[in-house]
C-alpha cells in the first residue's frame, strides 16, 4: 500500500471525487496551474479541465460566494482558502449564507459546499499564515467543522462530504489514537503529533495516556470523550488555538456536565496563548509542546 502525506491524500480524494461525479468542481487561488500553494490540487487541472478545476482571482469572498451559488445550483464545489488567516474576507459569506440557506429556506435550498482551509503554525511563515482559529467556525450554527490529523482521515473526511463516497471516515466520530488508562488527552489536527510525543515521554515515566483524536469539532463526539474520561478520571485538552473562548473551554464544560464524578483531578488545558501568533523566531514559545503537555498530565496524575 502506498504511503501518502496529508496533501497527497487530499489530492487523491479530490481526484477520485472529480472522476466519480461531474457535479464536483474545485476552485480557489492558484489551485489549477500551480496545483495550489501546498500542491494539494496538483495535476487536477490536467486531468479534469479548467472548467472544473478553476483558478480564481484573489477574491476570497468571491470564491465562497460564487461556490455557494454553484452549490445551490446543483454543483458540489470544493473551495480552497490558501491559509486560515486569509479566510476572513469570506467569513461573511460563510456565516451569513453558507451556514444558513437550508434553515432560511426550510430545506428547499441547500449548499453542499466544502471549504478547505489549511491552518496552524510551526513552519516559520509570514504573518497571517499560521492562524488556528477553528473555534470561530465551530461557533457558527449550520456548519460542520472537521480537522483531520492523518492522511487517511483527511481523504476520508473529504469524501464523506462528497456525493459519491468510495471510502469514508464518518463526520462526527472521534477515534482513540492511543489507548491508555491514567489520563485522557484530547486533541485534533496537527497537535496529534505533539500529543503523540508527549504520550511517549509519559510512558517512559510510567504514565499511560489515552489519546482521543476528535477529528470532527462539529458535530462533536461527546460520548467518545466521556467514555475515556470515565475510564481514566483525568483529562488534558490540547489545542493550538488561543485559550480564551477556545474549544477546550467547551470540552471542559461538557466533561463537568457529564463526567464530573469520575474525575480525580481538575481538567487541564494546554493551548496557544491569547497573543497574536508570533513570527518565526518566537513561534516555538507559542505552540503547545510535548513538554507542556507532559507537565500538565503529570500535574493531574500526581494531584
Amino acid at each position: 500500500m502506498a504511503t501518502l502525506n496529508v496533501a497527497q491524500a487530499i489530492n487523491q480524494g479530490l481526484d477520485q471525487a472529480l472522476a466519480a461525479d461531474r457535479r464536483v468542481v474545485v476552485l480557489g487561488e492558484d489551485v489549477g496551474r500551480t496545483g495550489g500553494v501546498f500542491r494539494v490540487t496538483d495535476g487536477l487541472l490536467e486531468r479534469h479541465g479548467e472548467d472544473r478545476v478553476i483558478d480564481t482571482p484573489v477574491s476570497e469572498s468571491g470564491i465562497v460566494g460564487a461556490a455557494f451559488g454553484m452549490a445551490v445550483g446543483g454543483l458540489h464545489p470544493v473551495a480552497e482558502m490558501q491559509f486560515m488567516g486569509f479566510s476572513y474576507p469570506a467569513y461573511d459569506q460563510v456565516v451569513s449564507h453558507v451556514s444558513r440557506i437550508r434553515n432560511r429556506s426550510r430545506h428547499r435550498f441547500t449548499a453542499p459546499l466544502v471549504l478547505r482551509i489549511p491552518y496552524g503554525g510551526g513552519i516559520g511563515a509570514a504573518e497571517h499564515h499560521s492562524e488556528s482559529t477553528e473555534a470561530i467556525y465551530a461557533h457558527v450554527p449550520g456548519l460542520k467543522v472537521v480537522v483531520p490529523s492523518t492522511p487517511r482521515d483527511a481523504k476520508g473526511l473529504l469524501l464523506a462530504a462528497m456525493p459519491e463516497e468510495p471510502y469514508e471516515v464518518p463526520i462526527g466520530r472521534a477515534t482513540v489514537a492511543r489507548e491508555g488508562t491514567d489520563v485522557t488527552v484530547v486533541a485534533w489536527g496537527a497537535m496529534l503529533r505533539e500529543v503523540g510525543k508527549a504520550a511517549d515521554m509519559l510512558e517512559e515515566d510510567g504514565v499511560n495516556a489515552e489519546v482521543i483524536d476528535l477529528r470532527s469539532l462539529v458535530p462533536l463526539d461527546t460520548e467518545a470523550v466521556m467514555e475515556s474520561v470515565r475510564k481514566t478520571g483525568r483529562a488534558v485538552i490540547v489545542h493550538e488555538a488561543p485559550r480564551t473562548a477556545g474549544l477546550a473551554g467547551e470540552l471542559i464544560a461538557l466533561i463537568q456536565e457529564r463526567a464530573l464524578y469520575s474525575l480525580q483531578a481538575p481538567v487541564a488545558r494546554v493551548t496557544g496563548w491569547d497573543t497574536v501568533f508570533p513570527l518565526k523566531r518566537s513561534e516555538h514559545h507559542y505552540l503547545p509542546s510535548p513538554e507542556r503537555i507532559v507537565a500538565a498530565a503529570k500535574r493531574l496524575v500526581e494531584s
Binding site: 468571491g62 460564487a66 451559488g69 445550483g73 451569513s96
Partner: peptide, 12 residues
C-alpha cells in the same frame, strides 16, 4: 453578498 450567489447559480 447575494450578487455572488447569482454569479454562482449562473455559473453552475
Amino acid at each position: 453578498a447575494h450578487m455572488l450567489h447569482a454569479v454562482g447559480l449562473a455559473w453552475a
